[in-house]
Simulated assay, not measured.
Amino acid sequence: MADVALENPPIHYRSIFLFLFYLSLILSLAFTCCRTIYVRYQARQKNNDWATGRRTHLWLFIFLAAMSLGSTWYYMISLFIRTYDDWAASPQGIPYAGKDTPLITRLGLWLYNTYIFQTAWETVSETPARVWWSGQIFGWTIGWSLFLGVMGRRYRIPHIWVFMLLAQAVAVSFSANLFFAAVAVSSRVDEKTLAFAWSPPLLYEAVPVALSLLDTLAVPIFAYQKEFMLILLAPHFLVFIPTLLGPGPKDSSEPTTKAQGARATRRYVVLMQWVAAASVVLQAYFTFLARRELGTELSFGEFARKLWDTVYVHPACSSVSWDAIMSAVSAFFWALVHGFDSRRMVGGL
């Protein structure tokens, strides 16, 4: 029976289908986001009602989106190749890695026997130096979820949860720049609308944020344990909550004023400042752990160089690290084009 199995290995169509579905989902989500940008771009061109500087902002963030996609997915493709090569060199893969085995069979066996994304996240959570980079992605995503919620409502961008799903399927920085571009081509905010002044009960936004931050601490602790995927996926689901909140029919009957809109803006500025402060504290803790791992006697320059070397120890580390870098670059430019005015940065015109 063993010889028969070796000569006629199964074709794992399900594994191949799931991988192709993942790639198709990426294309579908990216198309949906780009379609929103294109439709609104056409509307601005037709009506010639561009807000000051928005046309320049559009091309800036499209450029940054392309940079984000290239810098992260070059290494994602490298990760796929690396995991295939690892499988082909393993006892499971050696009997089938040759060209005598049909390609579809080899691909199915590779995907069936390799937990690509679990392995990738366990790899980037393996050491404090790697967590120093990967932990930043959680921080960016948590804060960005609040930003998506308020900006999606204020600029009436449809299906903002699609941007969050794209961020998790591709890269946070790529999706964030597409969202910035979508804001750039949207019509000016109307301060008299309910969407501008409305905000949900604080509990609905604060609890998912707090739980996500706590879960970020737990992710590296549970690496290579059976609970790892549950711990890893928890914040991935929690960050969708702020993007799904919106005024209901009952709220729509309530009158709004400019003062209400100003209060909502102040609330989000303060809330995001608290999230930013919590993320800084979290990153300081990760820095302490990385410093302890790499050597407390190192100078700042040596410590920074070793952290940079960590970026390239594995394709998974490279992809996540460059996502963190491009997220920081994108956030900087979003702040820059708004004059570092926190009120303007959350659509509080």
Score class of each variant (00 low, 15 high):
126 E>W: 08
132 W>I: 12
41 Y>P: 01
107 L>K: 02
156 R>D: 14
81 I>P: 04
55 R>T: 02
233 L>W: 11
235 P>T: 07
93 G>Q: 01
53 G>A: 06
315 P>E: 00
284 A>M: 12
99 K>N: 15
218 A>Y: 09
7 E>V: 06
5 A>Y: 15
50 W>L: 02
232 L>W: 08
245 L>M: 13
218 A>G: 05
306 K>L: 11
290 A>L: 03
265 T>I: 09
340 F>C: 10
47 N>K: 08
103 L>D: 02
57 H>P: 01
178 L>N: 05
52 T>Y: 07
121 W>T: 03
330 S>W: 02
337 V>E: 11
33 C>D: 07
298 L>Q: 01
273 Q>P: 06
56 T>S: 08
331 A>H: 02
126 E>S: 15
332 F>S: 00
263 R>V: 13
172 V>Q: 09
196 F>T: 04
317 C>H: 14
289 L>C: 12
348 G>C: 10
313 V>I: 15
257 T>N: 04
11 I>C: 12
40 R>M: 01
304 A>L: 11
261 G>S: 07
56 T>D: 11
117 F>A: 00
39 V>E: 10
137 I>G: 14
286 F>A: 12
131 V>I: 05
273 Q>L: 11
186 S>D: 01
289 L>R: 09
14 R>Y: 13
260 Q>F: 06
144 W>M: 08
5 A>I: 14
236 H>G: 12
103 L>H: 04
136 Q>G: 15
42 Q>H: 07
203 L>K: 13
145 S>H: 12
173 S>P: 08
121 W>P: 14
294 L>S: 05
20 L>D: 05
24 S>Y: 08
11 I>R: 13
301 G>W: 00
301 G>C: 02
191 E>R: 03
41 Y>F: 09
184 A>M: 03
204 Y>C: 13
236 H>L: 13
347 G>R: 03
222 F>A: 11
215 D>T: 15
194 L>Q: 06
333 F>R: 00
282 L>S: 12
256 T>W: 01
45 Q>H: 00
285 Y>Q: 11
301 G>P: 02
45 Q>N: 08
266 R>Q: 09
248 G>H: 11
323 D>V: 14
163 F>K: 14
81 I>D: 14
197 A>C: 00
241 I>T: 14
87 W>M: 01
108 G>M: 04
80 F>L: 06
318 S>N: 09
1 M>P: 07
265 T>V: 14
157 I>H: 05
123 T>N: 09
217 L>D: 06
96 Y>K: 10
305 R>H: 03
317 C>Y: 01
293 E>C: 10
60 L>I: 08
287 T>M: 02
229 M>W: 08
208 P>R: 04
310 T>D: 03
125 S>P: 03
333 F>P: 01
270 V>Y: 07
40 R>C: 04
57 H>A: 15
183 V>S: 03
86 D>I: 00
110 W>S: 03
298 L>I: 04
231 I>P: 12
336 L>D: 11
345 M>T: 10
88 A>R: 09
227 E>S: 08
27 L>P: 08
136 Q>M: 09
109 L>G: 07
